[in-house]
Amino acid sequence: MTVIKFNNVTKSYRTHSVLDHMDFTIEEGVLTGVIGRNGVGKSTLMKISAGYIQATSGEVQVFSENPFNSLKVSANSILVDDTMSFSDKLSLSDILKEANRFYLNWDAQLAQRLFDYFSFHPDVRHKHLSKGKKSTFNAIIGIASHCPLTIFDEPTTGMDTAVRKDFYRALLKDYIANPRTILLSSHHLEEIEDLLEDILLIHDGKIRFHGPITDLQEMLVKLVGKKVNVLAHTSKRTIFGSQVNGAYSEVLVENKFTADEKIRLSEEGIKMIPVSANDAYVALTTGAKGGIDDVFNRTATD
């Protein structure tokens, strides 16, 4: 079953557009990482999916309904992010009780165990929590609600490394025990790549890649060899990144070599090195401006 379906979706504000004619579908029971640089529209995509904001044009369907003003979507989904706010009249334990009231699949025992594990005080107000603690508390709600569509938008903001690891581990364990559709966004791919099944890579308001994480890794390849030799092979290809070390150069290109070409590469002493998902992500999202090196290179030549 398809859980989320974006069909030609655009979201624009007065001055700029965030999502640009986006098409994708998320299937049920998949843990998808929404990856992209800061400000590329990850949060916008998630808020549209949760029905908080409305797409400017195009069709959005969540559980086969337009999520905006859909009671069904609201009852079956949760979006955990830093805009979650709770009345300062409610203590943390009150908030857990309220969540229990609203989410039919709420796992009160799990919530309480996580609450105790991360040593929260039940009488504290949500607004008095530190940033990391707030994120941790929100994440507990996200996990324990067991919503058929659970969305985490940068859930680890402010958490320290140990808590991040605990959170991801808790999420994975709970996901295995209660399979459901989860969207998880982060700009640190290396942190969550072990967790993810699929990746939805957003860049400049467009989907740059959507598929299993292994496909992302195989999408690019790094050629390492003598500068001249490498150049001959890459001149007609899109270069995603290059580095020159003396007479040798390393170039990232799309992994679209025929069997013949591969043989020739090895004959010319050019190595094909597989890239990590993170390198591929960085390379795909660097954009036309090139890398940070380019900024400095230009200043040097000018």
Binding site: D88, K89, L90, D94, D123, R125, K127, H128
Partner: peptide, 9 residues
């Protein structure tokens, strides 16, 4: 903004 003393419910 959160003040240290708020009356709870």
């Amino acid at each position: 903004k959160p003040s240290k003393w708020t009356m709870n419910k």
